[in-house]
Design a protein around this nucleic acid. Structure first.
Lengths: 200, 200
DNA sequence: CCCCTGCTATGACCGCTGTCATAGTAGCGG
DNA sequence: CCGCTACTATGACAGCGGTCATAGCAGGGG
C-alpha cells in the first residue's frame, strides 16, 4: 500500500504527496518520506538537490497531473457524459476512499497551499499550476459535453472549489455528508449549463 | 494591527488564529504567538496548561464563533436579504481583504483541519464544531429568508464549501477570480431556493 | 510583616528537522 | 586495473520546537 511507482525517485515523489495530504507539509519530514517510499535516505540529496522545497513542489505537480488525468478517465468511463455525472464521479472517488480507508488524507494541493502559500513562493506557484491543470481538464470535459465555452471554466472552478471545501468539512466531521451534499445540490445547476442558458 | 483584544489571554488566542491562518498550525510557534500578541512568554503555560493543542483548539473555536457572528451581521446589514446577497457579502469580505492587505492569510479552520485532522483528535473536533457553528448560522439566515427548512442546511454547506475551496484557489493564484466566480455562479441557485422549488 | 494567589521571567532540556560532508559501493567503458 | 558516473550510506551540525523547572514580582487579606 505504500510503494507503487518503479524508480526510487518516482516513489519518493508519490510518498511525499501521500504524507503531505495526510499531515501537511510542515509535519512531513524528509526522512519520513524516504522511509515511506522504501528508498535510501542518501538518495534524497541526489534526486532532489533543491531540498524539501523541490520535493514538495514535485509532489504538488504530480497531484495536479493525477487529478487531471483522473478527470479524463472518468469522462471516458461515463456511458453518456453529463456535467453532473462527472462531478458525481469526482466526489465519489473521495466518498469511496473515506468509506474504505478512513478519513486520513485530504488533497495534497490544498495542504501545500495552506502551509506554504505565504512562506514559499515556488510552492505557491506549483499549487496554482496544479489547480490550473485540474481546472483545465474539467473545463475541457464540460466543453465536450456541450457547455458553452465561456461557461466551462467558471463552472469547472465552481466544481473544484466545492469539492475542495467539502473535503475539508468531511475530514473535520469524519463524515461524507458535505461531499454528497455538494454533489446533489450542484448537479442540476451543472446540467442546466448544457442547454446554454446561464445566469447573469 | 497585531493586537486588539483586551486581556493577554484573549490576545494570544486571537494572534494564534492570525498566525495559523497565514502559516498553518505546524509552522506557528508558541513563542511567535506570544510575541505577536505582545504577551509575556511565561503566560503561555499559565493560561494554556494544555499546551499548544489547547491554544490551537481555542483559536479554531474563536474563528468559528467569529464567522458565525459575521454572518449574523451581514444579514442584519442587508437592506432586503436574499441568499445570493448574503453569499456575496461573505465572499466580499475576502476579496476586500485580498485586495487591500494581500493574499497572506486563509481560513484558520481550514488550516487546522489540513494540519491536524489526522494527528490531533481534539483539534479535528474543534474544527468540526467550528464548521457546524458557521453552517448553523448560515442555515438559520437562509431559513429566515424563506428557504424551506430541509434545504437550508444543505445550501449552507454548499456555500461554505464553495467559499473555502475558492479561498484555497485564490491564495494559490494570488487572484480573487475563484471567489468572484463562485459568488456569481452560485447566486441564482441560492435565490431559486427561496421559492421552494428545489432539485431532486 | 506574612502568606497566598495570580501572573511573569528565564534558562535549560531534549527531540526533531533540513542540510551538508564525507566516504563508500556497483557497474561499465577502455 | 583505472577512471568515471550513478547512487547509497552515515554521521555531524546547527537551529528551532514545545515543554518543564524554578524563581521572581505584585497585590491583597489577615
Amino acid at each position: 500500500m505504500a510503494v507503487s511507482g518503479r524508480g526510487p525517485r518516482e516513489r519518493m515523489v508519490f510518498s511525499a504527496a501521500q504524507l503531505i495530504r495526510r499531515d501537511g507539509v510542515a509535519s512531513t519530514g524528509m526522512r519520513e518520506v524516504a522511509a515511506h517510499a522504501r528508498a535510501p535516505r542518501g538518495s534524497l540529496q541526489h534526486y532532489f538537490p533543491g531540498g524539501k522545497e523541490q520535493l514538495v513542489n514535485e509532489a504538488v505537480g504530480w497531484a495536479g497531473r493525477y487529478a487531471a488525468e483522473r478527470v479524463d478517465r472518468f469522462l471516458a468511463a461515463l456511458p453518456e457524459p453529463t456535467p453532473s455525472g462527472l462531478f458525481a464521479q469526482m466526489v465519489r472517488q473521495w466518498t469511496d476512499e473515506y468509506g474504505t480507508t478512513g478519513f486520513a488524507g485530504g488533497c495534497p494541493v490544498a495542504a501545500a497551499t495552506v502551509d506554504c502559500a505565504e512562506s514559499t513562493a515556488s510552492t505557491r506557484e506549483a499549487s496554482s499550476a496544479a489547480f490550473a491543470h485540474w481546472t483545465g481538464a474539467v473545463a475541457r470535459a464540460l466543453s465536450g459535453m456541450g457547455v458553452p465555452g465561456e461557461r466551462a471554466e467558471p463552472l469547472a472552478t465552481l466544481m473544484i472549489s466545492s469539492l475542495e471545501g467539502a473535503l475539508l468539512m468531511a475530514r473535520a466531521e469524519r463524515d461524507v455528508r458535505a461531499l454528497t451534499t455538494v454533489a446533489r445540490e450542484l448537479g442540476p445547476l451543472l446540467d442546466a449549463a448544457v442547454t446554454g442558458a446561464g445566469p447573469g
